[in-house]
Simulated scan of single mutants.
Amino acid sequence: MLPPRIVRRIILAPLVIVVTVLVLVTLPLWLLVTFGASLRLPPPQRRGLRFVWFGAAWLTLESAVLIACLGLWLSGAFGRARRQERHYALIRWFLSKVYAVAVRIFRLTLVVEEPPPTPQERAARLSRPVVVLSRHAGPGDSFLLIYLLLSRYERRPRIVMKAALQYDPSLDVVVNRLPNAFVPRRSGRERVVAEIRRLATTMDDHDALVIFPEGGNFTPRRRRLAIRRLEEKGLAEEAERARGMDHLLPPRPNGAIAAITACPEADVIFVAHTGLDDLVTIGDVWRRLPYAARITAKWWRVPAAEVPRDRESQVRWLYSHWEEIDAWITAQRSTRDGETPPDRGTARDQEAPPDQEVVPDQGEGAPGGR
């Protein structure tokens, strides 16, 4: 069970700072031990030094955020809007530093394919809120997405997260001071959808509500179970379309539909990415992290006027875009492996839903099941 907030503030937060000081003081010893241990491993597995450096950098940045949050709390004589602006700036600073460290230590390369910068696209980036629907894969996808929204696109992200993430003190403090939501693991889908609806209702032109419709990372077992659940619910069409997707779990529509309904003026952004998809657990990262990490992402916008408003059309539309993401991932992996991607076309080429149907869903542990 998650400790009460007061316990987390007076125990967990100071503990992070204490651990950081101890790690920094003993860092030469950690590096020496890790280097000696790595000599017994084959070269591809000599990742210990990189992980020690990254861990020390992460702890240092976490402690800096906690100290800054304490300073903002003590000087809290400013309005709510100004207070939120400073906390968003703090998150932007933290994620930009983490990204810079990852680039330096793990040789991370991030390539993003964007829509052409037409006058309409440039205007849309500044004139209305957005609902962001992203695939869920790998441990760092959420951080990278939030980093891009804050730093490159100057958006204020909102997200529904698992309550257990509040064990991370800096995340606990900062996120709880901004329009976000933590939900207990056993709270049920209705609670998650209600929180999404609440966050979407109050968005303005600078906000972005982030949802991961799959509800978790892809694994073959989860894919089989998700298809079976669709079949048991009598959703034969959705089950058949899910079987045609090789890299994604079928999207859960309730959260996305709730967001679109609560904020009908919002555009919908779809985000596809690939590169470190197979690195799901800590063990995967330790064993298989490449010497030079590369992530490729692509996003496209669906204007609010083109988003369908009846549920059945929305569900079909969401599956169409999810099929497009799956086809894009297949093409990216084929190109990376030196193969010619199959000429399957995009989901829009294969199926043109009537009345330009559109739909999204939900995030990490925030399902939107049907």
Rank of each mutant, 00 (worst) to 15 (best):
L32Y: 05
R191Q: 14
A347D: 06
A226C: 05
R80P: 01
G216V: 00
W73R: 15
R156C: 02
A262E: 11
I17T: 09
L49Q: 08
Q84D: 02
Q314F: 01
E306H: 14
V130S: 11
G188W: 07
S38N: 15
R156F: 01
P342I: 10
G48T: 07
G365I: 11
G368H: 10
F106G: 10
L66A: 04
W317P: 00
E154W: 06
V131H: 11
V23N: 06
E121D: 09
W286P: 06
E323Y: 10
L22K: 00
Y319L: 10
R152I: 01
L279C: 08
R46C: 07
W317G: 14
T281A: 07
R155C: 02
G76C: 08
R229G: 00
R228N: 06
A259H: 05
Q45W: 13
L133V: 14
V315P: 01
D141W: 06
A100T: 10
F270S: 12
R348N: 02
R252S: 01
P116I: 01
P116L: 03
R155L: 05
V175H: 05
Y291W: 13
R252W: 00
D361T: 04
S63T: 12
M1E: 09
W53K: 15
Y99N: 09
A304D: 01
D310R: 13
P264E: 06
V358T: 13
S151W: 04
C69M: 14
L27V: 01
T335Y: 12
R252L: 06
V174F: 03
R92M: 01
P119G: 02
Q166D: 02
R316M: 02
F212N: 08
L27M: 02
P44F: 08
L72N: 08
L235V: 00
V21D: 00
V271E: 13
E238M: 15
I17Q: 12
S96M: 03
I227A: 05
A352I: 03
G234T: 11
A57L: 12
E323N: 08
T60G: 15
D278N: 12
R177M: 06
T201H: 08
A164K: 13
V359E: 08
T281F: 06
E62V: 07
A347W: 14
D246G: 03
R135G: 09
G369K: 12
R348V: 00
Q332E: 15
E364Q: 12
P117Y: 00
G48Q: 06
R185L: 05
I295F: 07
P354T: 07
Y153L: 12
Q84H: 04
E265Y: 07
A164N: 12
E312F: 03
R243T: 01
L145G: 09
P367C: 03
R294M: 02
P251M: 03
